[in-house]
Design a protein around this nucleic acid. Structure first.
Length: 258
DNA sequence: ATGTCGTGGACGCCACGA
């Protein structure tokens, strides 16, 4: 089973590119972030015509997450459970069961600047994600929590760590929040399979970062032991970042075989 | 500090978020 997580920065702008990529690369499941549309504007028909089922959790032109699957799509749940939903009710989390694995498509708040209230929101959101995964018993079942975490877990995940010392995405509290999620018992399978430097998933549009390979590893796939043990390979498809009018993120691809 | 994208409002550019 091939599972892909990809921040696609607007599904309406890139539906042909994303779907074309999925078909060409034989993706069984796509966990998408930043669809940037409400449910009524998602191009369901195009995916369904290609044999995929779709669950989407979106409200307006901000955020938005989706799960696309051709190996079943059961029990979709958007957002945090119950009382944990408010006031953090932006569409940034969607769960569904595909191919026997409980999957979460995750879009963590950006944080903006270290002194911005949005940064605190990011930290609280990450703690709520940890709490949600604990509540749902993610570690003890076949689980895959993947998406745009907007955090580079270590300095190995940054092209030039010194440049990010005073910026979001690399600060100690953000990394501690990621570590707390991993410490539930999940495993960062990208790191396990690709232990070296230079494994990036995002390159800045503004600085022409892709041409200079100045990237960050912001997109993570955190797996329960049952799924991590079955993960045969992990790769980033950098070619997708080089397409015409690309997203600023590349797809992260997992091949899982139970 | 800057850059480039995407979106929506009331445009033919500006605001905002990334």
């Amino acid at each position: 089973m091939r599972v892909v997580t990809w921040n696609i920065n607007s599904i309406r702008t890139r539906v042909d590119q994303v779907l074309g990529w999925a078909v060409a690369n034989q993706a069984d499941v796509l966990l998408l972030q930043e669809t940037k549309c409400g449910d009524s504007d998602f191009p369901f028909a195009a995916f369904e015509a290609a044999g995929y089922e779709v669950a989407h959790h979106g409200v307006n032109h901000w955020n938005g997450v989706a799960i696309v699957s051709r190996v079943g799509l059961d029990n979709p749940v958007g957002g945090f459970d119950g009382h944990q939903r408010e006031p953090f009710d932006e569409p940034r989390l969607l769960a569904a069961t595909c191919g026997g694995v409980r999957m979460w498509s995750v879009y963590v708040p950006n944080g903006r600047e270290l002194d911005d209230p949005h940064y605190l929101y990011k930290l609280v959101w990450l703690e709520r994600l940890r709490s949600e995964l604990a509540l749902k018993g993610a570690v003890g079942q076949r689980s895959l929590v993947a998406g745009d975490f907007n955090v580079a877990p270590t300095d190995l995940d940054i092209y030039m760590p010194s440049r990010w010392k005073k910026r979001t995405h690399a600060s100690p509290p953000e990394r501690a929040a990621i570590d707390a999620i991993i410490d539930l018992g999940l495993r960062d399978v990208t790191r396990e399979h690709l232990p070296g430097a230079g494994v990036y998933t995002w390159w800045n549009y503004r600085t022409d970062g892709f041409a200079k390979d100045q990237g960050l590893r912001l997109d993570l796939a955190l797996c329960s032991p049952a799924v991590a043990d079955a993960t045969e390979s992990v790769h980033v498809d950098r070619a997708a970042r080089g397409l015409e009018r690309p997203s600023d993120h590349a797809p992260l691809v997992l091949d899982i075989n139970f």
